[in-house]
């Protein structure tokens, strides 16, 4: 492969997070379209979240799960359309860092909730602790 072709196709060059995909074509119109699509999807997901939270439309115990799923979907929309994190080879480093960050976040939040739930379950009831102190 000649060097010219590498430059032309953006192959083999890394992209900074926030950079537009290099095959997007003619600059500003494509960029504007990307932000508009992102805004539309984000508004749709947000409105759905707020509507579901106070409605009887679906089975009530399922609402928290639905809200969490909608939030994760919206974070994905923000990452793709606003932060321009893609799966292209020029974005590998950014995706790897994101993956590590997400792993730590899940370990931290999931681990805390798991451990604290078990501690609560195994703790002596509060009135018994009070009696032991006298």
């Amino acid at each position: 492969m000649s060097d010219d072709r590498i430059v032309e196709q953006g192959l083999g060059q890394d992209a900074a997070p926030g950079d537009e995909p290099q095959d997007a074509g003619s600059g500003i119109a494509q960029g504007l379209l990307s932000y508009l699509v992102g805004l539309g999807l984000a508004v749709l997901l947000t409105v759905t979240s707020f509507y579901l939270a106070g409605s009887d439309l679906v089975w009530r115990p399922s609402i928290p799960v639905a809200l969490v799923v909608l939030a994760i979907a919206q974070m994905g929309v923000h990452l793709v359309f606003f932060l321009h994190i893609t799966t292209g080879p020029e974005n590998t480093n950014n995706v790897m860092a994101l993956g590590f960050g997400v792993l730590i976040v899940f370990l931290l939040i999931g681990g805390s909730l798991w451990i604290m739930a078990h501690l609560n379950q195994n703790m002596m009831p509060m009135n018994q602790i009070m009696q032991m102190q006298h």
Binding site: Q13, D14, A15, A16, P17, G18, D19, N93, N94, A97, L98, F100, G101, I104, V105, L108
Partner: peptide
């Protein structure tokens, strides 16, 4: 690219 990547790492640490 280097600056953007470094700032991306900072943002992820902020999210943590």
């Amino acid at each position: 690219v280097v600056v953007g990547y470094g700032f991306w790492i900072f943002l992820l640490s902020d999210i943590v």
